[in-house]
Amino acid sequence: MKSAAFQYSRPETVAEAVALLTAAEGSAMPISGGQSLLILMALRMTMIDRLVDISRLPELRELRDDRSDVFIGASTTHAMIEDGKIPDPSTGLMSRVASRIAYRAIRNLGTIGGSMALADPSADWPACLIALDAEVSIAGPDGQRWEKAEDFVSGAYETILLPGEIVLGFRIARRQSMRWGTAKVSRKSGAFADSMAVFVEAAGDGLPRAALTGTTSHARILPRVGKYAQNRSILDPGDLRAAILDDLAEIVPDADAYQLRCHVATVSRAITDARAS
């Protein structure tokens, strides 16, 4: 189980990285933590001609606290977030989510940017960042752009990243009186989620956001659930269930009965978890 041969470069700047990715003959891929990519390569499920090591680029390691929002560089590891070594716009949600990703040794290298860019359908960060309504900073041959996290992931292992583009980081707004909850179902500890939900709401700040991952496609917001939960302190289990099922019918039309039960459970429990805090 050894990777096929590839070229390796370690650029010093983002511009250089983008240039390498753009100019590469054959397939090129940025690598940071490599905790998913190197596995796919070892299994020869992914064959790449050139790896561009972006793990040391200073721009991707940036952490900025601008009071109203926080910028988290793409190379920030799950473990740094788990250990509270970043300015936290989420009052603990991100630390909780990070602590439940895979295993500690994986979290020490795996990065939030890599997780988003790979967009594994069962990954935790897409759901979390969508629920937090984060924005993604992207650098590419045509300069830098911002996109909403919700629009960034577009399918299983699919994002809106164009060839040569890399994720620089994420901007997450601080909210007042934020409440959050999360719930996950997996076959065993550390395994990818079969269903994972994140629920976030804040005082006077638009709709509560419920996000779901672990489907065959990508992480998505459940709009009807948000609407139903808004300004309603006591939720009727039947009505909530109906709202969840309505959303699921739209975003995961191919889900079977078991998957629906899991999704209903994780979404409901994420809300309960948020409201209990």
């Binding site: 179902v185 076959r187 079969d194 009965a257 078991y258 039960r261 899991c262």
Partner: peptide, 18 residues
């Protein structure tokens, strides 16, 4: 007895969709 099998066994007994 994976989560799926357990859940399905319960659903079957309850007459729910499996």
């Amino acid at each position: 007895m994976t989560p799926r099998r357990v859940s399905e066994a319960v659903a079957r007994a309850r007459g729910d969709a499996v």
